[in-house]
Design a protein around this nucleic acid. Sequence first.
DNA 1: GCCGTTTTCGGCCCGACTGTTTTCAGTCG
Length: 585
Amino acid sequence: MSSNKEVAKLFDQMAAGLEILGANRFRVNAYNRASRVIEDLTEDVRAVVEQDLPTAVKRLTAFDGIGKGMAEKVVEVIETGEMTELKELLQKVPAGVFELLEIPGIGPKAAKAMWEELGIASVEDLKATSDEDLAKVPRMGKKTVANIRKAIAFNEESGDRVPIGLAKPLAIEIREELAQLDGVRQVEYAGSLRRGRETIGDLDFLVACDDSALARDHFVSMPRVTQVLAKGETKSSVRVKAGAVVMQVDLRIVPEAVYGAALMYFTGSKEHNVRLRELAIKQGKRLNEYGLFSGTEERPQDSGAEPLAARTEQEIYADLGLPWVAPELREDRGELERGEKPLIQVSDIRAELHAHTTASDGRLSIEELAREAAGRGFHTIAVTDHSKSQPIANGLTEDRLKRHIEAIREADEAVPEIKILAGSEVDILSDGSLDYDDELLAQLDIVVASPHAALRQDPATATERLLKAIRHPLVHIIGHPTGRIVNRREGLAPDLKALIEAALESDTALEVNANWNRLDLRDTHLRAAVDAGVKIAINTDAHDSRHFDFISYGVQTARRAGMEPESCINTWDADRLHGWLRSKR
DNA sequence: GCCGTTTTCGGCCCGACTGTTTTCAGTCG
């Protein structure tokens, strides 16, 4: 685990503990914010601190949300491995009580009450407590107890946030179902799915319709619904199960006149919304899910006030003096200051530079792969089968690769509508050397070098390994640089700053692997690379024709990094792209 | 605890729904 994530976790725990103890909510919020900022840092926080200890606090406070107090705690954690204040807090609140907060419906007040009244100090304790005893806790009646039982079961069944590649198909299905209802004028999914996050916690739907009762009743009785959590005038909430995917789904029904305001509110992120609302206050306005209003009166919508803007997102941003902000950027990472620079979109992609055939572990022949790519309007497809150290993926020996190159040249003749490049996804071995010798690599049009094994290396070794590959003069692209698998494998945690500098110097591109299991580089790392001016490749790593559709996940990740089309070599025209590839030969 | 186109003090986003209340606290997003 990267040290950023470890440090962030401690601040997160501080926030939870303080909340249980009933601390000032703004203080709690400050810890939450610090945790988020630290987790999002592209620099390794340990490196920042150790670079020069005396000035560490000062440099840390340069990050928004990190003040002197937080900075000193970061330094303490890096130096000693502990946070005194957290240790003291854990004396007061048993670690197991924190687990209770993971259960939907249980907040800090309930956790504290159960612990103080009944000594419940873990989810196991809670499960072992009888309904009768639980109901003795203040403000806890029969219904609350029953909801807690269901929530525990839900948590055990659903586990992690759901990868976007599993959540999106389900969301599209539900959207279609809602769209078919009589009187539904607009329907869209919002939330983290619309923002294109790599994992999705729950699905959020927004509907504008003539008959809200019909939409709501249909929603809570959809076939996949296993439990109804809430059913109100404008807001309903259910749990659904679709195969292995178990998710909460929220529906919000609004008048069409305020659809834009509601869509903004429901898309989030929460932090982005807070920023906008603060900005509105500074301008003497008030923003909520019913619109942007002049004046700072509470609930202006109740007194019949006409909003300045509400129908579309565009007019609300415009009234605040901002260009429309793409959902992918709405994470409070500086998007309000970004201006109107273009963002990359799927239609900009004109080449696939990382794909497999039946020669290794793909399902398409060279020609089938080429025709699929041509059918998608691409000018170039690179055939990059696995190298010999991947026997499990039927990696090619030197002799097989030589014959494969010949076969690719022949296919290139046979399919004139697209340029087929002979390439390889060559393994970066654990010491940073490559799986083929230079003489063979030089015969290839394109080399994608990727780590596949030894993915638990320590950060320093991993950094050296990847630097060696980046600096190799015959390598064009580093494929899925960390080797992480979303929710399943952390992968390597190299010093991103060092990789970025090396990639710039040696003119090597870094990949965003668009397979939703990978999304590697991830959004925050990608942002640092893009800001530094590194060339980026967005590739689907296709093993089958339908894998080409993964491109939308990669592009969305790139949009979250604020990437303009120019940064991405897959958007270049054929001459420019082929020219750059030849510059490494 | 953080932060500053008036500020080093005094703010800090806003609303819906549920359940246990009898006017609202807790939780969520």
